[in-house]
């Protein structure tokens, strides 16, 4: 595709504010370790979409705040946030989808999931601020451990807990197949350490 903008956010142990004005179709990949992040995504051109694939591994208390503003009509956002909270700390996701009056025919889709490895305190706050009738939006949120059902299925063909956990976390934290794995080496190595 020639007119697709691709942005990578690859951070470790940092705190940052980011701002993007989206005027053409854009995919943002965020692979971050132990990072707090405010990210503003403004859709400023009619007919464009943004897909935000966020995968985070967390060790301390961190907040991930995503604000997507549909500033013009006929814009779409797909916000996928997956976090693995490794220790007994807190990981908070605030995901705001804003569609003001006049930005009709816009779509805001959110899917947020956090897996706690230990007894971490994780919270997801999905927030849809929609002031326009002619729009569609949805959100789903899941917080929990690695599913027993998944572990059992992998165990039942002889895969031990360590390998099963690794397969599942790898799938969970790399939830797109269109990425060049060389770019995220540091992140994949971090998964091995969980």
């Amino acid at each position: 595709m020639n007119d697709l903008n691709i942005i990578y956010i690859l951070e470790k142990n940092s705190k940052l504010d980011l701002n993007y004005d989206i005027d053409k179709n854009t995919i943002i990949y965020n692979y971050s370790v132990n990072t707090s992040l405010n990210i503003n995504i403004n859709l400023v051109c009619e007919g464009v979409f943004v897909k935000y694939y966020c995968n985070v591994i967390n060790y301390d208390n961190n907040i991930h705040h995503v604000i997507v503003k549909h500033l013009v009509s006929n814009t779409c956002s797909y916000i996928y946030c997956h976090g693995v909270n490794v220790d007994n700390n807190s990981l908070l996701f605030y995901i705001d989808g804003v569609i003001p009056k006049g930005s009709n025919k816009s779509t805001n889709y959110q899917d947020s999931q956090i897996i706690n490895i230990k007894f971490g305190k994780s919270k997801i706050y999905p927030n849809l601020l929609i002031d326009e009738f002619d729009t569609s939006s949805s959100h789903s949120a899941y917080i929990g451990k690695l599913k027993d059902e998944y572990m059992f299925y992998l165990n039942s063909v002889g895969i031990n807990n360590k390998d099963a956990k690794h397969l599942l976390l790898y799938a969970f934290l790399n939830n797109t197949d269109s990425i060049d794995n060389d770019k995220i080496d540091f992140f994949l190595e971090e998964i091995d350490r969980i």
Binding site: Y150, Y153, L154, N155, V157, I159, A171
Partner: peptide, 30 residues
């Protein structure tokens, strides 16, 4: 997993779906 490695195999009534783990990766690891 220890029982499975001894050679016991269960063909499930309702096999589990797992997003992101490929069929071949799963079987190769097994």
């Amino acid at each position: 997993d220890e029982r499975a490695r001894l050679g016991i195999f269960l063909c499930n009534q309702a096999p589990t779906e797992i997003e992101g783990v490929s069929n071949s990766e799963f079987l190769r690891t097994a």
